[in-house]
Amino acid sequence: MKIAIFTDTYTPQVNGVAKTLKRLTAYLDGKSISYRVYAPAASGTKDHNQNVIRFKSFPFWCYPECRLAFPHLSKVKKDMKDFKPDLIHIATPFNIGLVGLYVGKKMNIPVVGSYHTHFDQYLDYYHLSFLAPYAWRYMRWFHHSFKKTFVPSLHTKQKLKIQGFHNIKLWKRGVDRKHFKPITDSEQHVRNYYNIKAPYLFSYVGRLAPEKGLDTLIEISKRMPPHVNKNIHWLIVGDGPLRRSLQMKAPLNMTFTGYQDGIRLAQIFASSTLFVFPSETETFGNVALESLACGTPVIGASAGGIQEIVTHKKTGILCRPGDVESFTTAILSLLSDPAKLAAMSKLAREETRDWGWDDIFEQLLRDYQNVVDNRSHPSLA
């Protein structure tokens, strides 16, 4: 099988979509499966992977960490004719995704797609809610010709069904348990690096953007009772348009680390007492799964895909979305019950055993093959 992937975000960009696609291509490399990735050019980074075709891009004006690409249609068509893919996978509904859809139709190549982001909810946070009906209309048009639309959670699948999408298939996400794991010497390393003296370490990992519920996070940090607060330090891992304003509002016991990856990120997860994640807009929530794999319970919003990762009151606590009191009560209940916290930590690690990437990608390849076979034998569709 030969697979062509069209995406408006890819490594070295830091987000769940880019990271998932990088893992997918690494898996394809390991299986010696031929692929092409059509993606935005990475600013200041040279790509030595000949399977990745890059296009000139610029930061998106209202969200600079996202890039707007300008794909060269004739270049894509020529490369596709040479490559002769069996299937096209479109990961995003923007410029490069549109080119993938156009080429797929013109060359009669079966197209599948994936849905990663609740853009309608994002619009709420940017005071553009009036655009939501138009966004859904566009997304229905964009996805209607796909043989399958892959979604990361059952919650997302149900939401798309309500919106009139068809041929929806679950494509779960996974976690590398060899990388994200309890690390015995990580806590002192992280504490020394960030000069943390407080006994409790709370972390947040993700984009620093309005849709992540970070005003709620700041308010949670300020609502901790003084006698507890003096024993807490917060690590805010990530970057984005809100970083400067958040730092101005943040309490003294909060450190902003910027983007982290690799062993440092795993160490931060493993060193944390709790992972606090108030986002209400997650289609999945990779970071919550990574936290659990490190043995760190999650205090998260009872919304979106997070509900399918965190087992309430067993591997974490799911709180009322946007409710500061619900979050602070959950945190205080665990800090006052060390035995419960320890039990949650142990179970958090254990419950990630069934989230291996290899099984997930093997299923995805079976779904790809099913689409290709049905193209060759329409009577089986």
Rank of each mutant, 00 (worst) to 15 (best):
E282R: 00
T273M: 09
I309R: 02
D261V: 09
M254I: 11
S279T: 14
G305K: 07
R320C: 13
V310L: 03
E308S: 03
Q307L: 13
G258S: 13
E290L: 07
V287S: 13
Q260R: 14
Q247R: 11
L252P: 12
F284E: 07
I306W: 03
L289R: 04
F284T: 06
T281M: 06
F277W: 09
R264D: 13
I299F: 02
S272K: 01
T315M: 04
I299P: 01
D261S: 15
E308D: 05
Q260N: 12
F275K: 02
F275C: 10
L289F: 06
I268H: 05
V310I: 13
K313Y: 12
N286T: 08
S271I: 10
Q247A: 11
F277P: 05
A266G: 12
G304S: 04
I309K: 04
T311A: 14
V310F: 01
A288L: 06
V287N: 10
F275G: 02
D261E: 15
G316S: 05
D323E: 10
Y259G: 12
S272A: 08
K249A: 14
E308C: 01
P251S: 07
I317A: 11
G305W: 05
Y259N: 14
F277Y: 14
P278A: 04
K314S: 12
I306V: 15
I263K: 15
G295V: 03
I268E: 06
P321T: 09
L265Q: 08
E308Y: 00
A266Q: 10
R264C: 13
F284N: 06
S291G: 09
T257R: 02
T311R: 14
A250T: 11
R264T: 14
L265V: 09
T257F: 06
D323W: 08
A303D: 01
G304V: 00
C319R: 08
F269Y: 15
L318Q: 04
L252W: 11
Q267N: 15
T255N: 11
L292D: 07
D261A: 14
P297K: 01
D323I: 09
K314Q: 14
P297C: 04
R320V: 13
I309D: 05
N286C: 11
P278M: 03
L274C: 08
I268A: 05
S291V: 01
P297Q: 01
F277Q: 05
G285D: 02
T315E: 02
Q267R: 14
I299K: 00
H312F: 04
P278W: 01
E280C: 05
L274S: 05
M248D: 15
V310Y: 01
V287L: 10
Q260D: 09
E290W: 04
H312K: 05
N286G: 10
P251V: 07
A266F: 03
V298W: 02
T296W: 00
L274T: 06
P251F: 04
G285L: 00
P321Q: 09
K313S: 13
Q260W: 04
N286W: 05
